[in-house]
Design a protein around this nucleic acid. Structure first.
Lengths: 180, 180
DNA sequence: GTCTATAACTCGATAGAC
DNA sequence: GTCTATCGAGTTATAGAC
């Protein structure tokens, strides 16, 4: 589902990949939606964990952690395992699936807001509303995925996050120092 | 298709909305893909025209035009009529549809790059690579749509673009002056 | 617990009357 | 140029043997 999205991933394709019969799947999961919720919950937890490991580390200063989140390695052309789901009408129509989407974004947003506020206080990031900047950072990453997939090329993503890093840091030119 | 995406918009739904029979549609368009290309070309042209009207205006200074693009009114919860298509595997698999996607983004990117370069030279925008910042601006908007749709609420979009405007302008605090 | 078979439906597309 | 009827394939889900 990470590869093809929710609607485009039919039970048939899942069964072929898993090399089991229909019965097995419907024995363990009541429906495609329940299966998707289990899979999505897993990948969302993994995504959140990686965000936490970059943002909550205590070795680097707050500004470098925010920039590190922007510049972190990602499977750009596959798309974000979380954000990708937001474009599927079937996902938004499902309470269980859209709930995972909302809570995961809310958790990363909260983390980012806190680290950004710390970074502004310490002087490494430019002064502005931390809540707004947290959504700006989230949007740059999510939008970078969109641009890269549209182009079939990771470059637009890389340009977008480098530009954002340069804008955020008070020493703009060294904005990409942290992870490169 | 703007409302539901390409894959999720079946010929049946189009015919119901248009109040015509199957025959009419297949008389004028060879396939769903051809129909979608015609519709997509229209909405992409309209989207590009609105971007041009904000970015290519000569009354405001370059920095205000970039901020104006960020803060322009949009149907946030519907999603970007162009960017929305990038998340559909069927669209990316179609040469005719993905070509519209690529060229439209390329055109807005070129416009943005030029205006941003002018704005940096004039001192209204912070100094950085204009090509990177152009993708940053595009990504903030596209990502803002993703966040807003995930939440079912336009607020994350508004925060993201306001944060970006504040970061871009040399007088960050008044970044949202242009259009509010 | 897993399998095959199949139900009930929708998909995109075509046929042929009018 | 538009209509209704229908095709074959694929969808999500269920039935029932093993």
């Amino acid at each position: 589902m990470w590869e093809r999205g929710y609607a485009s991933t039919s039970p048939r394709k899942i069964l072929d990949r898993a090399e089991v019969g229909q019965g097995s799947m419907y024995h363990h999961f009541g429906s495609k939606e329940v299966l998707a919720a289990a899979a999505f919950e897993r990948s969302a937890a993994a995504t959140l964990a990686r965000a936490e490991s970059v943002l909550a580390g205590s070795e680097e200063d707050a500004a470098s952690r925010v920039v590190g989140y922007l510049l972190a390695q990602r499977d750009v052309l596959l798309g974000c395992p979380v954000g990708r789901m937001a474009s599927d009408p079937d996902v938004l129509a499902s309470d269980s699936l859209s709930a995972i989407l909302r809570t995961t974004f809310a958790q990363v947003r909260a983390l980012l807001t806190e680290v950004i506020a710390t970074g502004i206080a310490a002087g490494g990031l430019r002064a502005a509303d931390p809540a707004e900047l947290a959504d700006t950072v989230l949007a740059v990453v999510q939008g970078g995925y969109v641009l890269a997939r549209a182009e079939g090329d990771a470059e637009p993503f890389e340009r977008a996050v480098r530009g954002a890093a340069a804008m955020l840091r008070t020493d703009g030119e060294r904005g990409d120092r942290a992870k490169r």
